[in-house]
């Protein structure tokens, strides 16, 4: 085959490669392990922002970054709100995580205390600790740009992972479980 024929095949090869790439991306989007709008977090590998937050019913006391640090195990911090539809979507998975022993701490983001309490009463409360971020300032310090968002904090207080959007069983299996094992 001469050079001219090879060059004629080049567009087909490029289209083929693009097709494979698009298929892989769509497949990962379907599984929920890839979100084209998600952003890298500059906090990864850095200490979590420090905060002290008040309690959120049904928990009487809130929690602080120092308490996350002192938990002795990796903590998954989940920002949620009763007004957030994808939060309800991920709730079953959060319940599963809590049952399997993951330290899941919840922060109600810009929510009315009674609305957040009602949400947890209706869907169940997966959170070992619970706090309220009424103004959303702590969330901004974490770089939250939409609820739900989850942050994995290791036992030394370093942010290891951020997931923007609902946690699905596929994300738990593919990403969260290996990370929990790595930082246990």
């Amino acid at each position: 085959m001469n050079r001219r024929n090879l060059l004629l095949l080049a567009p087909l090869a490029v289209a083929g490669a693009a097709g494979v790439g698009f298929y892989a991306a769509l497949e990962r989007m379907r599984r929920g392990t890839f979100d084209p709008h998600s952003l890298p977090s500059p906090l990864i590998g850095k200490p979590m922002p420090s905060f002290v937050l008040p309690g959120q019913a049904p928990a009487q006391f809130g929690f602080s970054s120092d308490e996350v640090w002192a938990a002795g195990s990796p903590v998954l911090i989940n920002f949620f709100a009763s007004w957030c539809v994808p939060c309800a979507l991920e709730h079953d998975e959060l319940m599963q995580l809590a049952t399997s022993g993951v330290a899941l701490w919840g922060i109600a983001y810009k929510d009315k205390p009674e609305a957040a309490a009602g949400f947890l009463q209706e869907h169940g409360n997966p959170f070992a600790r619970l706090a309220a971020d009424r103004t959303g300032r702590t969330a901004i310090d974490f770089g939250v740009y939409g609820v739900p968002e989850s942050y994995l904090i290791d036992r030394t207080g370093i942010v290891r992972w951020r997931w923007a959007g609902p946690i699905t069983p596929a994300i738990t299996a593919d990403t969260l479980r290996p990370l929990l094992q790595q930082f246990a």
Partner: peptide, 8 residues
């Protein structure tokens, strides 16, 4: 801003 939300 960039320390929280990155260069984006």
């Amino acid at each position: 801003m960039t320390s929280r939300y990155g260069e984006f």
